[in-house]
Computed example of a mutant assay.
Amino acid sequence: MKCVISVLGKDRSGIVAAIATALADCGANIDDISQTILDDIFSMTMLATLDTEKADFNTVQERLAKISDDLGMQIIIQREDVFQYMYKI
């Protein structure tokens, strides 16, 4: 299952490492990643493939929610198909 992960918040060290580690622990693969820092604001978008036999969408979402709380950042995960439908005209 492909997912889009969006991250936004105050820049600090360890953001990418925390998210990448959580995804790896859940058996997910990062297919593409884009990040930028505007002044002191960190923004990142990832496309990841989840291994639903190892961890389902809800499990990954809960894991990212904990990291969101720990880092004080906004982390949103969406199924790619839902993300695509949101932007169809």
Score class of each variant (00 low, 15 high):
Met1Gly: 15
Met1Leu: 15
Met1Cys: 15
Cys3Gly: 02
Cys3Pro: 00
Cys3Tyr: 02
Val4Met: 08
Ile5Val: 02
Ile5Pro: 00
Gly9Trp: 09
Gly9Met: 07
Gly9Ser: 06
Lys10Tyr: 07
Asp11Trp: 08
Gly14Glu: 04
Gly14Asp: 05
Gly14Ile: 03
Ile15Ser: 02
Val16Tyr: 02
Val16Asn: 04
Val16Ser: 13
Val16Cys: 12
Ala17Met: 02
Ala17His: 09
Ala18Phe: 00
Ile19Lys: 04
Ile19Glu: 11
Thr21Leu: 08
Thr21Val: 04
Ala22Met: 06
Ala22Val: 04
Leu23Gly: 00
Ala24Asp: 00
Ala24Tyr: 05
Asp25Gly: 03
Ala28Cys: 07
Asn29Ser: 11
Asn29Val: 06
Ile30Ser: 01
Asp31Lys: 06
Thr36Pro: 08
Thr36Cys: 11
Ile37Arg: 10
Ile37Pro: 01
Ile37Tyr: 02
Leu38Arg: 12
Asp39Ala: 08
Asp39Gly: 05
Asp40Phe: 01
Asp40Lys: 03
Phe42Thr: 03
Phe42Met: 01
Phe42Ala: 04
Ser43Asp: 01
Ser43Ile: 05
Ser43Lys: 04
Met44Arg: 08
Met46Lys: 01
Met46Thr: 00
Met46Phe: 07
Leu47Phe: 03
Leu47Ser: 02
Thr49Pro: 00
Thr49Tyr: 02
Leu50Pro: 02
Asp51Arg: 14
Asp51Gln: 05
Thr52Cys: 12
Thr52Trp: 07
Glu53His: 15
Lys54Thr: 07
Ala55Phe: 03
Asp56Lys: 14
Phe57Trp: 04
Phe57Tyr: 13
Phe57Ile: 01
Val60Glu: 12
Val60Ala: 13
Gln61Thr: 03
Gln61Met: 04
Glu62Lys: 15
Glu62Gly: 12
Arg63Ile: 02
Arg63Trp: 10
Leu64Tyr: 14
Leu64Asp: 12
Ala65Phe: 13
Ala65Lys: 13
Ala65Cys: 09
Lys66Gly: 09
Ile67Glu: 00
Ile67Gln: 11
Ser68Gln: 12
Ser68Glu: 01
Ser68Trp: 09
Ser68Tyr: 11
Ser68Leu: 03
Ser68His: 11
Asp70Cys: 04
Asp70Thr: 07
Asp70Gly: 05
Met73Ile: 10
Met73Asn: 10
Met73Trp: 08
Gln74Asp: 14
Ile75Trp: 15
Ile75Phe: 14
Ile75Lys: 15
Gln78Leu: 09
Gln78Asp: 09
Glu80Ser: 13
Glu80Gly: 05
Asp81Glu: 15
Asp81Arg: 15
Asp81Val: 13
Asp81Ile: 11
Val82Phe: 12
Val82Trp: 10
Phe83Glu: 01
Tyr85Arg: 13
Met86Tyr: 03
Lys88Gly: 12
Ile89Phe: 03
Ile89Val: 05
